[in-house]
Design a protein around this nucleic acid. Sequence first.
RNA 1: CGGGGUGUAGCGCAGCCUGGCUAGCGCACCUGCCUUGGGAGCAGGGGGUCGGAGGUUCGAAUCCUCUCACCCCGACCA
Length: 569
Amino acid sequence: MRYSEYFIPTLKETPADAEVISHQLMLRAGMIRKLAAGIYNYLPLGLRSIRKVENIVREEMNRAGAIELLMPMVTPAELWQESGRWEKYGPELRRIKDRKEAEFCLGPTHEEVVTDIVRREVRSYRQMPLNLYQVQTKFRDEIRPRFGLMRGREFIMKDAYSFDVDSSAADISYDKMYQAYRRIFQRCGLNFRAVEADTGSIGGTASHEFMVLAESGEDAIVSCSACEYAANVEKAESPVKGGTEHAEPRPLEKVATPEKRTIEEVAEFLGVPKAAMVKTLVLSADGEPVVALLRGDHDLNEIKLQHLLGCDTLEMAGDEIVTKVTGAPVGFAGPVGLKVKIVADLAVQVLRNFVTGGNAKDLHLKNVNLDRDCHVGIFADIRNVVHGDPCPRCSGGTLEMWRGIEVGHVFKLGTRYSEALHATYLDADGKEQTVFMGCYGIGIGRTVAAAIEQNHDDNGIIFPLPIAPFHCIISALNMKEEAVKEASETIYQQLSEAGVEVLLDDRDERPGFKFKDADLIGIPLRIVVGSKNLADGKVELKERRSGEVSLLPIDEAVEKVKAAVAVAL
RNA sequence: CGGGGUGUAGCGCAGCCUGGCUAGCGCACCUGCCUUGGGAGCAGGGGGUCGGAGGUUCGAAUCCUCUCACCCCGACCA
Protein backbone atom coordinates (compact mmCIF):
# COMPACT_ATOMS: atom_id res chain seq x y z
CA MET A 1 0.00 0.00 0.00
CA ARG A 2 1.25 3.43 -0.93
CA TYR A 3 0.71 6.01 1.76
CA SER A 4 0.07 8.74 -0.82
CA GLU A 5 -2.84 6.76 -2.25
CA TYR A 6 -4.16 5.52 1.07
CA PHE A 7 -6.35 7.25 3.66
CA ILE A 8 -4.82 7.86 7.09
CA PRO A 9 -6.01 11.21 8.42
CA THR A 10 -3.68 11.72 11.38
CA LEU A 11 -4.08 14.51 13.89
CA LYS A 12 -1.27 16.51 15.41
CA GLU A 13 -3.40 17.73 18.28
CA THR A 14 -5.32 15.64 20.77
CA PRO A 15 -9.08 15.99 20.43
CA ALA A 16 -10.51 17.59 23.56
CA ASP A 17 -13.21 15.04 24.31
CA ALA A 18 -10.98 11.94 24.34
CA GLU A 19 -10.30 10.90 27.91
CA VAL A 20 -8.27 7.74 27.77
CA ILE A 21 -5.07 7.16 25.85
CA SER A 22 -6.42 4.51 23.49
CA HIS A 23 -9.24 6.79 22.44
CA GLN A 24 -6.88 9.71 21.89
CA LEU A 25 -4.42 7.63 19.91
CA MET A 26 -7.04 5.91 17.77
CA LEU A 27 -8.40 9.33 16.85
CA ARG A 28 -4.96 10.79 16.26
CA ALA A 29 -3.79 7.81 14.25
CA GLY A 30 -6.79 8.12 11.95
CA MET A 31 -8.21 4.75 12.96
CA ILE A 32 -11.67 5.89 14.02
CA ARG A 33 -13.93 8.92 13.92
CA LYS A 34 -17.01 9.52 16.00
CA LEU A 35 -20.32 9.70 14.17
CA ALA A 36 -22.58 10.09 17.23
CA ALA A 37 -22.30 9.37 20.95
CA GLY A 38 -20.87 5.87 21.25
CA ILE A 39 -21.05 5.28 17.49
CA TYR A 40 -17.90 5.28 15.39
CA ASN A 41 -16.71 5.12 11.84
CA TYR A 42 -13.90 2.62 11.41
CA LEU A 43 -11.40 4.23 9.05
CA PRO A 44 -9.13 2.02 6.94
CA LEU A 45 -6.31 1.75 9.45
CA GLY A 46 -8.65 0.97 12.32
CA LEU A 47 -10.52 -1.55 10.25
CA ARG A 48 -7.30 -3.38 9.43
CA SER A 49 -6.57 -3.88 13.13
CA ILE A 50 -10.14 -4.92 13.80
CA ARG A 51 -9.89 -7.49 11.02
CA LYS A 52 -6.65 -8.81 12.47
CA VAL A 53 -8.30 -9.47 15.79
CA GLU A 54 -11.35 -10.96 14.11
CA ASN A 55 -9.20 -13.36 12.15
CA ILE A 56 -7.27 -14.50 15.18
CA VAL A 57 -10.59 -15.06 16.90
CA ARG A 58 -11.93 -17.00 13.92
CA GLU A 59 -8.87 -19.20 13.71
CA GLU A 60 -9.00 -20.09 17.37
CA MET A 61 -12.75 -20.57 17.44
CA ASN A 62 -12.57 -22.86 14.43
CA ARG A 63 -9.67 -24.73 15.99
CA ALA A 64 -11.81 -25.26 19.08
CA GLY A 65 -14.58 -26.74 16.96
CA ALA A 66 -16.94 -23.77 16.82
CA ILE A 67 -18.78 -23.05 13.57
CA GLU A 68 -19.36 -19.60 12.15
CA LEU A 69 -22.78 -18.33 11.08
CA LEU A 70 -24.40 -14.91 10.96
CA MET A 71 -27.57 -13.83 12.67
CA PRO A 72 -29.51 -10.64 11.93
CA MET A 73 -28.89 -7.44 13.77
CA VAL A 74 -32.63 -6.72 13.93
CA THR A 75 -34.56 -9.36 15.84
CA PRO A 76 -38.30 -9.78 16.52
CA ALA A 77 -39.82 -8.99 19.91
CA GLU A 78 -41.57 -12.37 20.20
CA LEU A 79 -38.33 -14.21 20.92
CA TRP A 80 -37.45 -11.77 23.67
CA GLN A 81 -40.90 -11.98 25.12
CA GLU A 82 -40.54 -15.74 25.22
CA SER A 83 -37.33 -15.55 27.23
CA GLY A 84 -38.75 -12.82 29.44
CA ARG A 85 -36.02 -10.38 28.56
CA TRP A 86 -38.29 -8.01 26.62
CA GLU A 87 -39.46 -6.79 30.02
CA LYS A 88 -36.37 -7.53 32.04
CA TYR A 89 -33.81 -5.84 29.82
CA GLY A 90 -33.81 -2.12 30.56
CA PRO A 91 -33.70 0.79 28.12
CA GLU A 92 -30.35 -0.54 26.98
CA LEU A 93 -32.36 -2.81 24.70
CA ARG A 94 -33.25 -0.52 21.81
CA ARG A 95 -36.77 -1.40 20.79
CA ILE A 96 -37.96 -0.36 17.34
CA LYS A 97 -41.08 -0.75 15.25
CA ASP A 98 -41.43 -1.48 11.59
CA ARG A 99 -43.96 0.22 9.28
CA LYS A 100 -46.64 -2.20 10.38
CA GLU A 101 -46.03 -1.31 14.00
CA ALA A 102 -44.57 -4.76 14.65
CA GLU A 103 -41.97 -4.70 17.42
CA PHE A 104 -38.30 -5.52 17.00
CA CYS A 105 -35.08 -4.71 18.77
CA LEU A 106 -31.50 -4.10 17.78
CA GLY A 107 -29.64 -7.20 18.92
CA PRO A 108 -27.56 -6.53 22.04
CA THR A 109 -26.67 -10.25 22.20
CA HIS A 110 -28.12 -13.31 20.51
CA GLU A 111 -29.06 -16.03 22.98
CA GLU A 112 -32.69 -15.95 21.93
CA VAL A 113 -32.02 -16.04 18.22
CA VAL A 114 -29.44 -18.81 18.32
CA THR A 115 -31.59 -20.86 20.67
CA ASP A 116 -34.43 -20.47 18.22
CA ILE A 117 -32.23 -21.87 15.46
CA VAL A 118 -31.24 -24.81 17.60
CA ARG A 119 -34.70 -25.67 18.83
CA ARG A 120 -35.89 -25.84 15.24
CA GLU A 121 -33.02 -27.87 13.87
CA VAL A 122 -31.54 -29.95 16.68
CA ARG A 123 -33.63 -32.94 17.72
CA SER A 124 -31.18 -35.64 18.67
CA TYR A 125 -28.33 -36.03 21.12
CA ARG A 126 -26.33 -37.12 18.08
CA GLN A 127 -26.32 -33.50 16.82
CA MET A 128 -24.40 -32.27 19.86
CA PRO A 129 -22.07 -30.92 21.04
CA LEU A 130 -22.65 -27.91 18.84
CA ASN A 131 -21.01 -24.53 19.10
CA LEU A 132 -22.17 -21.71 16.83
CA TYR A 133 -20.55 -18.31 16.64
CA GLN A 134 -20.68 -15.07 14.72
CA VAL A 135 -18.85 -11.80 14.45
CA GLN A 136 -21.60 -9.21 14.45
CA THR A 137 -22.31 -5.58 15.15
CA LYS A 138 -24.23 -5.27 18.38
CA PHE A 139 -26.23 -2.35 19.68
CA ARG A 140 -26.76 -1.55 23.32
CA ASP A 141 -28.14 1.85 24.20
CA GLU A 142 -25.61 2.40 26.97
CA ILE A 143 -26.48 4.99 29.59
CA ARG A 144 -23.12 6.59 29.21
CA PRO A 145 -20.95 5.61 26.30
CA ARG A 146 -17.35 6.68 26.77
CA PHE A 147 -13.69 6.02 26.12
CA GLY A 148 -14.08 5.55 22.36
CA LEU A 149 -14.31 1.93 21.35
CA MET A 150 -14.05 0.79 24.97
CA ARG A 151 -17.69 1.48 25.70
CA GLY A 152 -19.59 2.26 22.56
CA ARG A 153 -23.27 1.81 21.92
CA GLU A 154 -22.63 0.12 18.62
CA PHE A 155 -19.73 -2.31 18.70
CA ILE A 156 -18.38 -5.41 17.03
CA MET A 157 -18.58 -8.57 19.06
CA LYS A 158 -17.76 -12.19 18.55
CA ASP A 159 -20.40 -14.22 20.29
CA ALA A 160 -20.45 -18.00 20.51
CA TYR A 161 -23.07 -20.33 21.92
CA SER A 162 -22.55 -23.94 22.89
CA PHE A 163 -25.22 -26.61 23.07
CA ASP A 164 -24.74 -29.84 24.97
CA VAL A 165 -26.71 -32.80 26.22
CA ASP A 166 -26.05 -32.26 29.90
CA SER A 167 -24.21 -30.25 32.48
CA SER A 168 -20.94 -32.15 32.38
CA ALA A 169 -20.81 -32.08 28.59
CA ALA A 170 -21.46 -28.35 28.81
CA ASP A 171 -18.52 -28.05 31.18
CA ILE A 172 -16.28 -29.54 28.52
CA SER A 173 -17.51 -27.02 25.95
CA TYR A 174 -16.94 -24.25 28.45
CA ASP A 175 -13.42 -25.37 29.12
CA LYS A 176 -12.64 -25.51 25.40
CA MET A 177 -13.75 -21.93 25.03
CA TYR A 178 -11.81 -20.89 28.10
CA GLN A 179 -8.66 -22.36 26.58
CA ALA A 180 -9.41 -20.85 23.17
CA TYR A 181 -9.79 -17.44 24.81
CA ARG A 182 -6.43 -17.78 26.49
CA ARG A 183 -4.82 -18.47 23.11
CA ILE A 184 -6.66 -15.60 21.44
CA PHE A 185 -5.54 -12.98 23.90
CA GLN A 186 -2.03 -14.36 24.02
CA ARG A 187 -1.82 -14.13 20.24
CA CYS A 188 -3.06 -10.56 20.42
CA GLY A 189 -0.05 -9.79 22.58
CA LEU A 190 -2.06 -8.82 25.65
CA ASN A 191 -1.22 -8.99 29.32
CA PHE A 192 -4.45 -10.36 30.78
CA ARG A 193 -6.00 -12.35 33.61
CA ALA A 194 -9.00 -14.67 33.57
CA VAL A 195 -11.09 -13.89 36.64
CA GLU A 196 -14.19 -15.31 38.27
CA ALA A 197 -17.12 -13.07 37.53
CA ASP A 198 -20.69 -12.26 38.28
CA THR A 199 -23.09 -13.38 35.57
CA GLY A 200 -25.06 -10.14 35.38
CA SER A 201 -28.16 -9.88 33.26
CA ILE A 202 -27.13 -12.79 31.03
CA GLY A 203 -27.66 -15.16 33.91
CA GLY A 204 -26.19 -18.59 34.33
CA THR A 205 -24.26 -20.62 36.81
CA ALA A 206 -20.60 -19.74 36.40
CA SER A 207 -18.48 -17.36 34.43
CA HIS A 208 -15.04 -15.98 33.86
CA GLU A 209 -14.06 -12.61 32.50
CA PHE A 210 -10.89 -12.04 30.53
CA MET A 211 -9.38 -8.84 31.79
CA VAL A 212 -6.62 -6.86 30.15
CA LEU A 213 -4.65 -5.21 32.91
CA ALA A 214 -4.71 -1.44 32.49
CA GLU A 215 -4.96 1.58 34.77
CA SER A 216 -7.81 2.96 32.71
CA GLY A 217 -9.86 -0.24 33.09
CA GLU A 218 -13.46 0.19 34.20
CA ASP A 219 -13.44 -2.94 36.33
CA ALA A 220 -11.71 -3.60 39.61
CA ILE A 221 -10.31 -7.10 39.95
CA VAL A 222 -8.43 -8.94 42.66
CA SER A 223 -5.90 -11.71 42.58
CA CYS A 224 -4.26 -13.75 45.31
CA SER A 225 -0.63 -13.11 46.10
CA ALA A 226 -0.05 -16.82 46.67
CA CYS A 227 -2.47 -18.95 44.64
CA GLU A 228 -4.36 -18.81 41.33
CA TYR A 229 -7.48 -17.17 42.72
CA ALA A 230 -8.57 -14.12 40.75
CA ALA A 231 -11.98 -12.49 40.60
CA ASN A 232 -13.88 -9.37 39.69
CA VAL A 233 -14.58 -7.36 42.87
CA GLU A 234 -18.25 -7.74 42.02
CA LYS A 235 -17.75 -11.39 42.82
CA ALA A 236 -14.66 -11.57 45.03
CA GLU A 237 -15.08 -12.96 48.53
CA SER A 238 -12.91 -12.92 51.59
CA PRO A 239 -13.23 -14.85 54.82
CA VAL A 240 -13.73 -12.88 58.01
CA LYS A 241 -10.47 -12.36 59.83
CA GLY A 242 -10.26 -13.57 63.43
CA GLY A 243 -13.12 -14.49 65.72
CA THR A 244 -15.69 -12.45 67.55
CA GLU A 245 -14.35 -9.76 69.79
CA HIS A 246 -15.01 -10.75 73.37
CA ALA A 247 -15.07 -7.28 74.80
CA GLU A 248 -17.72 -6.78 77.43
CA PRO A 249 -20.67 -4.80 76.11
CA ARG A 250 -20.58 -1.32 77.55
CA PRO A 251 -23.66 0.78 78.13
CA LEU A 252 -25.13 2.53 75.10
CA GLU A 253 -24.15 6.17 75.02
CA LYS A 254 -25.52 9.12 73.06
CA VAL A 255 -23.03 11.60 71.71
CA ALA A 256 -23.65 14.91 70.01
CA THR A 257 -22.05 15.17 66.59
CA PRO A 258 -23.11 18.53 65.17
CA GLU A 259 -22.94 18.56 61.37
CA LYS A 260 -20.76 15.43 61.30
CA ARG A 261 -22.33 13.24 58.67
CA THR A 262 -19.76 11.17 56.88
CA ILE A 263 -17.83 8.28 58.34
CA GLU A 264 -14.64 10.32 57.95
CA GLU A 265 -16.05 13.32 59.77
CA VAL A 266 -17.47 11.32 62.66
CA ALA A 267 -14.38 9.14 63.03
CA GLU A 268 -12.17 12.20 63.22
CA PHE A 269 -14.54 14.07 65.54
CA LEU A 270 -14.84 11.19 68.01
CA GLY A 271 -11.28 10.01 67.60
CA VAL A 272 -12.21 6.44 66.73
CA PRO A 273 -10.94 4.39 63.78
CA LYS A 274 -13.28 3.94 60.84
CA ALA A 275 -13.15 0.19 61.39
CA ALA A 276 -14.78 0.70 64.79
CA MET A 277 -17.78 2.33 63.17
CA VAL A 278 -20.72 0.84 61.34
CA LYS A 279 -22.19 2.61 58.34
CA THR A 280 -25.90 2.30 57.79
CA LEU A 281 -27.08 2.46 54.21
CA VAL A 282 -30.72 2.77 53.26
CA LEU A 283 -31.58 1.13 49.95
CA SER A 284 -34.63 0.50 47.91
CA ALA A 285 -35.10 -3.10 46.74
CA ASP A 286 -37.90 -3.36 44.19
CA GLY A 287 -39.29 -0.30 45.95
CA GLU A 288 -39.08 -1.75 49.48
CA PRO A 289 -36.69 -0.08 51.92
CA VAL A 290 -33.81 -2.24 53.16
CA VAL A 291 -30.98 -1.27 55.48
CA ALA A 292 -27.44 -2.53 54.97
CA LEU A 293 -24.84 -2.45 57.73
CA LEU A 294 -21.14 -2.30 56.90
CA ARG A 295 -17.97 -1.68 58.81
CA GLY A 296 -16.97 1.96 58.48
CA ASP A 297 -13.98 1.24 56.26
CA HIS A 298 -15.85 -1.14 53.95
CA ASP A 299 -17.99 -0.51 50.85
CA LEU A 300 -21.26 -2.13 49.93
CA ASN A 301 -21.25 -4.63 47.10
CA GLU A 302 -24.64 -4.02 45.59
CA ILE A 303 -24.46 -7.09 43.40
CA LYS A 304 -23.97 -9.41 46.36
CA LEU A 305 -26.82 -7.75 48.19
CA GLN A 306 -29.06 -7.95 45.16
CA HIS A 307 -28.40 -11.66 44.79
CA LEU A 308 -29.07 -12.14 48.49
CA LEU A 309 -32.37 -10.30 48.38
CA GLY A 310 -33.36 -11.81 45.05
CA CYS A 311 -34.69 -8.48 43.84
CA ASP A 312 -34.78 -7.08 40.30
CA THR A 313 -33.72 -3.57 41.17
CA LEU A 314 -31.61 -2.25 44.00
CA GLU A 315 -30.65 1.36 44.41
CA MET A 316 -29.56 3.79 47.06
CA ALA A 317 -32.65 5.36 48.58
CA GLY A 318 -33.31 9.04 48.07
CA ASP A 319 -33.30 11.59 50.87
CA GLU A 320 -37.07 11.34 51.44
CA ILE A 321 -36.96 7.59 52.01
CA VAL A 322 -33.93 7.86 54.31
CA THR A 323 -35.73 10.47 56.38
CA LYS A 324 -38.86 8.36 56.50
CA VAL A 325 -37.01 5.19 57.54
CA THR A 326 -34.61 6.70 60.07
CA GLY A 327 -36.49 9.79 61.17
CA ALA A 328 -33.31 11.78 60.67
CA PRO A 329 -31.65 13.67 57.86
CA VAL A 330 -29.09 11.84 55.76
CA GLY A 331 -25.88 11.31 57.66
CA PHE A 332 -27.23 10.15 60.99
CA ALA A 333 -28.70 6.75 60.20
CA GLY A 334 -28.13 3.86 62.57
CA PRO A 335 -29.61 0.40 63.05
CA VAL A 336 -30.97 0.96 66.55
CA GLY A 337 -34.75 1.05 66.65
CA LEU A 338 -35.31 0.65 62.90
CA LYS A 339 -38.44 -1.18 61.80
CA VAL A 340 -37.27 -2.26 58.31
CA LYS A 341 -35.35 -5.28 57.14
CA ILE A 342 -31.69 -5.10 58.17
CA VAL A 343 -28.86 -6.95 56.45
CA ALA A 344 -25.45 -6.86 58.12
CA ASP A 345 -22.11 -7.74 56.64
CA LEU A 346 -20.17 -10.60 58.21
CA ALA A 347 -17.45 -8.17 59.26
CA VAL A 348 -20.06 -6.29 61.29
CA GLN A 349 -21.23 -9.43 63.03
CA VAL A 350 -17.99 -9.73 65.01
CA LEU A 351 -17.84 -6.08 66.11
CA ARG A 352 -18.55 -4.97 69.67
CA ASN A 353 -19.15 -1.51 71.15
CA PHE A 354 -19.13 0.30 67.84
CA VAL A 355 -20.29 3.74 66.74
CA THR A 356 -23.36 4.33 64.57
CA GLY A 357 -25.74 7.12 63.70
CA GLY A 358 -28.40 7.92 66.28
CA ASN A 359 -31.37 8.37 63.91
CA ALA A 360 -31.67 11.99 64.97
CA LYS A 361 -30.02 15.13 63.68
CA ASP A 362 -26.51 15.72 65.03
CA LEU A 363 -26.59 12.52 67.09
CA HIS A 364 -24.49 9.36 67.05
CA LEU A 365 -24.40 6.37 69.39
CA LYS A 366 -21.36 4.79 71.02
CA ASN A 367 -21.04 1.24 72.35
CA VAL A 368 -23.68 -0.21 70.09
CA ASN A 369 -23.96 -4.02 70.14
CA LEU A 370 -26.04 -5.77 67.55
CA ASP A 371 -27.56 -8.59 69.59
CA ARG A 372 -28.48 -6.25 72.41
CA ASP A 373 -29.49 -3.08 70.60
CA CYS A 374 -31.11 -4.03 67.34
CA HIS A 375 -32.57 -6.80 65.25
CA VAL A 376 -30.55 -7.88 62.25
CA GLY A 377 -32.50 -10.06 59.86
CA ILE A 378 -29.59 -11.54 57.92
CA PHE A 379 -25.83 -11.71 58.25
CA ALA A 380 -24.10 -12.17 54.92
CA ASP A 381 -21.13 -11.22 52.81
CA ILE A 382 -22.30 -7.98 51.20
CA ARG A 383 -19.11 -5.93 51.00
CA ASN A 384 -16.39 -5.33 48.48
CA VAL A 385 -13.11 -6.96 49.37
CA VAL A 386 -10.22 -4.57 49.91
CA HIS A 387 -6.52 -4.74 49.26
CA GLY A 388 -4.86 -7.03 51.80
CA ASP A 389 -7.93 -9.11 52.64
CA PRO A 390 -7.14 -12.81 53.13
CA CYS A 391 -7.63 -15.11 50.13
CA PRO A 392 -10.77 -17.27 50.21
CA ARG A 393 -9.02 -20.21 48.55
CA CYS A 394 -5.68 -20.62 50.24
CA SER A 395 -4.17 -19.92 53.60
CA GLY A 396 -1.57 -17.23 53.80
CA GLY A 397 -2.34 -15.44 50.56
CA THR A 398 -3.75 -11.92 50.50
CA LEU A 399 -5.75 -10.17 47.83
CA GLU A 400 -4.20 -7.62 45.51
CA MET A 401 -6.27 -5.12 43.54
CA TRP A 402 -5.93 -4.27 39.84
CA ARG A 403 -7.82 -2.41 37.17
CA GLY A 404 -8.91 -4.34 34.13
CA ILE A 405 -10.62 -3.94 30.78
CA GLU A 406 -13.09 -6.73 30.14
CA VAL A 407 -12.34 -8.02 26.65
CA GLY A 408 -13.99 -11.42 26.92
CA HIS A 409 -16.58 -13.14 29.03
CA VAL A 410 -17.55 -16.81 29.14
CA PHE A 411 -20.72 -18.08 30.81
CA LYS A 412 -22.20 -21.40 31.73
CA LEU A 413 -25.84 -20.72 31.04
CA GLY A 414 -27.36 -24.02 32.05
CA THR A 415 -30.93 -24.29 30.82
CA ARG A 416 -32.12 -20.77 31.38
CA TYR A 417 -32.73 -20.00 27.72
CA SER A 418 -33.29 -23.52 26.44
CA GLU A 419 -36.05 -24.02 28.98
CA ALA A 420 -37.75 -20.71 28.28
CA LEU A 421 -37.59 -21.30 24.53
CA HIS A 422 -38.14 -25.05 24.72
CA ALA A 423 -34.92 -26.17 23.08
CA THR A 424 -35.07 -29.90 23.66
CA TYR A 425 -33.71 -33.09 22.13
CA LEU A 426 -34.28 -36.82 22.39
CA ASP A 427 -31.66 -38.77 24.28
CA ALA A 428 -30.49 -42.32 23.52
CA ASP A 429 -33.51 -43.66 25.38
CA GLY A 430 -35.89 -41.59 23.31
CA LYS A 431 -36.65 -39.31 26.24
CA GLU A 432 -37.05 -35.56 25.78
CA GLN A 433 -34.30 -33.54 27.50
CA THR A 434 -33.46 -29.86 27.77
CA VAL A 435 -30.33 -28.60 26.05
CA PHE A 436 -27.50 -27.17 28.19
CA MET A 437 -26.02 -23.96 26.94
CA GLY A 438 -22.97 -21.77 27.29
CA CYS A 439 -22.23 -18.38 25.79
CA TYR A 440 -18.94 -16.70 25.04
CA GLY A 441 -18.31 -13.11 24.02
CA ILE A 442 -15.33 -11.10 22.86
CA GLY A 443 -15.42 -7.36 22.27
CA ILE A 444 -13.40 -6.96 19.09
CA GLY A 445 -13.05 -3.20 19.06
CA ARG A 446 -12.47 -3.17 22.77
CA THR A 447 -9.66 -5.66 22.33
CA VAL A 448 -7.92 -3.32 19.90
CA ALA A 449 -8.43 -0.41 22.31
CA ALA A 450 -7.14 -2.49 25.22
CA ALA A 451 -4.06 -3.45 23.22
CA ILE A 452 -3.33 0.22 22.67
CA GLU A 453 -3.83 1.01 26.35
CA GLN A 454 -1.13 -1.53 27.05
CA ASN A 455 1.15 -0.72 24.16
CA HIS A 456 2.00 2.92 23.60
CA ASP A 457 4.56 5.58 24.41
CA ASP A 458 4.78 9.36 24.13
CA ASN A 459 5.08 9.10 20.36
CA GLY A 460 2.01 6.97 19.81
CA ILE A 461 0.82 3.42 19.42
CA ILE A 462 3.16 0.43 19.56
CA PHE A 463 1.12 -2.33 17.95
CA PRO A 464 1.85 -5.96 18.75
CA LEU A 465 2.69 -7.27 15.29
CA PRO A 466 -0.19 -9.78 15.03
CA ILE A 467 -2.79 -7.01 15.24
CA ALA A 468 -0.86 -4.17 13.62
CA PRO A 469 -2.58 -2.66 10.57
CA PHE A 470 0.70 -3.09 8.68
CA HIS A 471 3.78 -5.06 9.62
CA CYS A 472 6.30 -2.69 8.16
CA ILE A 473 6.49 0.89 6.93
CA ILE A 474 9.07 2.10 4.46
CA SER A 475 9.89 5.74 5.04
CA ALA A 476 11.27 6.90 1.71
CA LEU A 477 12.86 10.17 2.70
CA ASN A 478 12.81 11.76 -0.71
CA MET A 479 10.99 10.06 -3.52
CA LYS A 480 12.26 12.70 -5.91
CA GLU A 481 15.72 11.23 -5.72
CA GLU A 482 15.88 8.44 -8.21
CA ALA A 483 18.08 6.16 -6.09
CA VAL A 484 15.84 6.47 -3.05
CA LYS A 485 12.75 5.88 -5.12
CA GLU A 486 14.22 2.84 -6.81
CA ALA A 487 15.49 1.24 -3.61
CA SER A 488 12.20 1.89 -1.82
CA GLU A 489 10.21 0.35 -4.64
CA THR A 490 12.47 -2.69 -4.68
CA ILE A 491 12.12 -3.27 -0.97
CA TYR A 492 8.38 -2.74 -1.22
CA GLN A 493 8.14 -5.32 -4.00
CA GLN A 494 10.24 -7.91 -2.25
CA LEU A 495 8.43 -7.64 1.08
CA SER A 496 4.99 -7.62 -0.50
CA GLU A 497 5.79 -10.71 -2.51
CA ALA A 498 6.91 -12.41 0.70
CA GLY A 499 3.51 -11.75 2.23
CA VAL A 500 4.66 -8.94 4.49
CA GLU A 501 2.07 -6.17 4.80
CA VAL A 502 3.96 -3.04 3.87
CA LEU A 503 3.03 0.61 3.84
CA LEU A 504 5.29 2.64 1.56
CA ASP A 505 5.45 6.24 2.71
CA ASP A 506 5.99 7.86 -0.66
CA ARG A 507 4.49 11.19 0.29
CA ASP A 508 6.22 14.42 -0.55
CA GLU A 509 6.82 15.33 3.07
CA ARG A 510 9.81 16.15 5.21
CA PRO A 511 11.50 13.29 7.06
CA GLY A 512 10.44 14.42 10.52
CA PHE A 513 6.85 14.52 9.41
CA LYS A 514 7.02 10.94 8.15
CA PHE A 515 8.75 9.67 11.29
CA LYS A 516 6.12 11.23 13.51
CA ASP A 517 3.30 9.65 11.55
CA ALA A 518 5.03 6.27 11.45
CA ASP A 519 5.47 6.32 15.22
CA LEU A 520 1.95 7.55 15.85
CA ILE A 521 0.23 4.81 13.87
CA GLY A 522 2.40 2.23 15.57
CA ILE A 523 3.78 0.11 12.74
CA PRO A 524 6.15 -2.38 14.43
CA LEU A 525 8.96 -2.26 11.87
CA ARG A 526 10.30 0.67 9.91
CA ILE A 527 12.77 0.78 7.08
CA VAL A 528 14.20 4.22 6.37
CA VAL A 529 15.55 4.78 2.88
CA GLY A 530 17.67 7.93 2.74
CA SER A 531 20.20 9.11 0.22
CA LYS A 532 23.14 9.27 2.62
CA ASN A 533 22.99 5.67 3.79
CA LEU A 534 21.95 4.54 0.34
CA ALA A 535 25.23 5.81 -1.00
CA ASP A 536 26.80 2.99 1.01
CA GLY A 537 24.11 0.61 -0.23
CA LYS A 538 22.48 0.60 3.18
CA VAL A 539 19.10 1.31 4.75
CA GLU A 540 18.06 1.71 8.35
CA LEU A 541 15.84 -0.79 10.14
CA LYS A 542 14.14 0.44 13.30
CA GLU A 543 12.00 -1.48 15.70
CA ARG A 544 9.16 0.64 17.04
CA ARG A 545 8.98 -0.94 20.48
CA SER A 546 12.65 -1.05 21.45
CA GLY A 547 13.75 1.85 19.32
CA GLU A 548 16.63 -0.37 18.24
CA VAL A 549 18.23 0.82 15.01
CA SER A 550 20.47 -1.13 12.64
CA LEU A 551 22.15 -0.08 9.42
CA LEU A 552 21.95 -2.90 6.92
CA PRO A 553 22.43 -3.68 3.25
CA ILE A 554 19.06 -3.73 1.51
CA ASP A 555 18.85 -7.50 1.11
CA GLU A 556 19.67 -8.08 4.73
CA ALA A 557 17.07 -5.60 5.92
CA VAL A 558 14.45 -7.32 3.81
CA GLU A 559 15.40 -10.72 5.19
CA LYS A 560 15.30 -9.45 8.76
CA VAL A 561 11.85 -8.03 8.32
CA LYS A 562 10.60 -11.25 6.78
CA ALA A 563 12.05 -13.23 9.65
CA ALA A 564 10.65 -10.92 12.32
CA VAL A 565 7.17 -11.12 10.81
CA ALA A 566 7.35 -14.91 10.51
CA VAL A 567 8.34 -15.25 14.16
CA ALA A 568 5.65 -12.90 15.45
CA LEU A 569 2.83 -14.57 13.55
C1' C B 1 -32.36 9.95 34.80
C1' G B 2 -29.91 13.54 38.67
C1' G B 3 -25.70 17.14 39.12
C1' G B 4 -21.97 20.10 36.40
C1' G B 5 -20.07 21.97 31.78
C1' U B 6 -19.32 23.07 26.50
C1' G B 7 -21.22 24.38 21.51
C1' U B 8 -17.43 30.43 17.52
C1' A B 9 -13.53 27.71 10.26
C1' G B 10 -11.54 20.63 9.51
C1' C B 11 -8.86 20.46 14.74
C1' G B 12 -7.44 23.26 19.30
C1' C B 13 -9.07 27.77 21.36
C1' A B 14 -9.83 33.51 22.54
C1' G B 15 -13.88 37.00 22.40
C1' C B 16 -19.37 36.60 26.08
C1' C B 17 -19.13 38.83 32.53
C1' U B 18 -19.53 44.93 31.03
C1' G B 19 -24.06 44.42 23.71
C1' G B 20 -21.30 48.62 19.21
C1' C B 21 -16.38 49.26 14.02
C1' U B 22 -14.87 44.20 8.68
C1' A B 23 -15.48 38.06 14.49
C1' G B 24 -9.95 36.78 15.89
C1' C B 25 -5.46 33.43 16.94
C1' G B 26 -2.52 28.71 16.32
C1' C B 27 -2.54 24.26 13.49
C1' A B 28 -4.55 22.14 9.09
C1' C B 29 -5.96 23.38 3.77
C1' C B 30 -4.83 25.91 -1.45
C1' U B 31 -0.87 28.66 -4.73
C1' G B 32 4.24 30.02 -5.32
C1' C B 33 9.29 30.13 -3.70
C1' C B 34 12.49 27.55 -0.68
C1' U B 35 13.68 23.23 2.12
C1' U B 36 14.50 17.37 2.92
C1' G B 37 17.15 12.48 9.00
C1' G B 38 12.28 13.89 13.99
C1' G B 39 5.53 17.39 12.81
C1' A B 40 10.66 23.66 8.68
C1' G B 41 10.67 28.98 6.61
C1' C B 42 8.74 33.19 3.61
C1' A B 43 4.79 35.38 0.67
C1' G B 44 -0.12 35.22 -0.94
C1' G B 45 -5.08 32.93 -0.47
C1' G B 46 -9.84 30.19 0.60
C1' G B 47 -13.04 28.79 4.41
C1' G B 48 -17.93 31.15 9.64
C1' U B 49 -26.20 31.27 8.97
C1' C B 50 -20.94 32.25 16.20
C1' G B 51 -25.50 24.60 17.46
C1' G B 52 -31.00 25.79 16.37
C1' A B 53 -35.68 28.66 17.25
C1' G B 54 -37.88 32.72 19.46
C1' G B 55 -37.44 37.28 22.28
C1' U B 56 -35.21 42.13 24.36
C1' U B 57 -32.64 46.22 21.77
C1' C B 58 -31.34 51.45 17.28
C1' G B 59 -27.84 47.32 17.36
C1' A B 60 -26.88 40.39 19.82
C1' A B 61 -21.41 35.55 19.29
C1' U B 62 -22.35 38.60 23.82
C1' C B 63 -28.56 39.59 27.53
C1' C B 64 -33.44 36.45 28.25
C1' U B 65 -36.62 31.98 27.10
C1' C B 66 -37.08 27.40 24.82
C1' U B 67 -34.69 23.51 22.22
C1' C B 68 -30.88 20.15 20.22
C1' A B 69 -26.15 17.97 20.42
C1' C B 70 -21.83 16.68 22.88
C1' C B 71 -18.59 16.14 27.25
C1' C B 72 -17.60 15.24 32.65
C1' C B 73 -19.34 13.14 37.67
C1' G B 74 -23.03 9.58 39.70
C1' A B 75 -26.37 5.52 39.46
C1' C B 76 -26.45 1.28 35.35
C1' C B 77 -23.96 -2.44 32.23
C1' A B 78 -20.82 -7.86 28.23
